[in-house]
Design a protein around this nucleic acid. Structure first.
Lengths: 211, 211
DNA sequence: CCCAAGTTGGAATTGACATTCCAACTACGT
DNA sequence: ACGTAGTTGGAATGTCAATTCCAACTTGGG
């Protein structure tokens, strides 16, 4: 017996090929707008115009604005992580860590340091106001931090990283440096702070290298 | 010859004792609300109710909502920095750094990890949408980072910190760790990430200690 | 005491936004 | 081909926010 599946929840929902495409188009347009103007600064009419759809379509596929926001969080998480692979899955050397961080810095420069981290921005705006959004953001950060920790753990298992190193803590510290660095860069319109913050933490990780 | 001073700009403006009090009351109520609900989530009517003033008073003292937001940024910056003194002005030992960071962590716990950094939250929301807000946020972060760097520089001048240490970079890294750590803590509702992130950077600074 | 300037209340205006509704249209399995 | 279910357009609704206005009240200096 299938759950009735309220409108807007894609689970168990039947979508035609066109429907799926429309749904995607809406999410992408919304993600883009929300990244640049914030969730609160992005209205449904804005999204309608950007995606070229009517209001009823948005409500048909997402139920309400909050539903759309949740979908945007998941979409940004998937997209961002996919973008970082395969680097993200091979962070098991200092060079790999530096390369990975450097890529994000270049990306930030490429867009003139406008906007910070796609996930971090959503987090700052939604963490306190939307409980279900916060939950998804928790898992977004977990999905991000996991591969970092795994890479460090592999280095440690191979004996390259001292046993004294707490890979979980180091992974958290690096993710925090990325987030904080991005925020400072966004405000200062220069990727320098990001690069310095991240580099300092990697230097610290490097200090745990064996021999 | 005095500039005409448009309404809402306090410079050169004549305020009675009561006027100044009202102005302060509005800023404080607005700061509180904006911290909890975000700038976009805080309406003028909300502020009216919280401060116990009428709409005309807000517009009389600040011109428009943006003017009020700018005042809130400055207020939060002043308040936050004042709150951290005298610790902030004496960050010239590893213990002092740890103590200072620890205080912020306890503060975060005390409020159940709701809300992140007062300045960082404003930064995330306003950096891309309000140019003049961004400018003030730049100076807010500079006023914050300055004392950190000064403390480190003093340690270095005293010969406690290696010449190889770049105090400016380390100060930026620490501030970024604070910001990123606060964001993660806010999302995860646990100060652990903040403490770990900040602790890792201080460990790194410690590695530059001479002998 | 008297006026100019500062302060306040509260209603009115204007516009936008989230959301709903329903009628028309289309795809697809049987 | 047929009908159910999915899809779409676009107008209508109700709410609420930002801002303006103006008249009345207070204060402080001369």
């Amino acid at each position: 017996m299938r759950t009735p599946a309220k409108a807007g929840e894609s689970k168990g929902r039947r979508l035609t090929k066109g429907g799926r495409a429309t749904r995607e188009r809406i999410i992408e347009a919304a993600a883009e707008l929300m990244f640049h103007r914030g969730v609160g600064g992005t209205s449904i009419p804005d999204i309608q115009a950007a995606a070229g759809v009517s209001a009823s379509q948005i409500y048909h596929y997402f139920g309400d604005k909050q539903g759309l926001v949740l979908a945007v969080i998941d979409h940004q998480t998937d997209t961002r992580l996919a973008q970082q692979r395969p680097l993200l899955d091979n962070l098991d050397s200092i060079e790999a860590l530096r390369e990975w961080c450097d890529r994000a810095g270049n990306r930030q420069d490429a867009r003139g340091c406008e906007g910070g981290c796609e996930i971090g921005s959503l987090a700052g705006e939604l963490a306190d106001s939307d409980q279900s959004a916060r939950t998804r953001l928790v898992s977004a950060f977990d999905r991000w931090e996991g591969p970092i920790r795994s890479g460090l753990a592999r280095m440690q298992a191979r004996g390259e990283l001292s046993e004294r190193a707490d890979t979980a803590v180091l992974a958290t510290a690096l993710l925090a440096a990325v987030q904080g660095g991005m925020l400072l860069s966004q405000v200062r319109r220069s990727s320098t702070a990001y690069r310095q913050a991240v580099s300092a933490v990697i230097d610290h990780i490097e200090s745990y290298l064996v021999r």
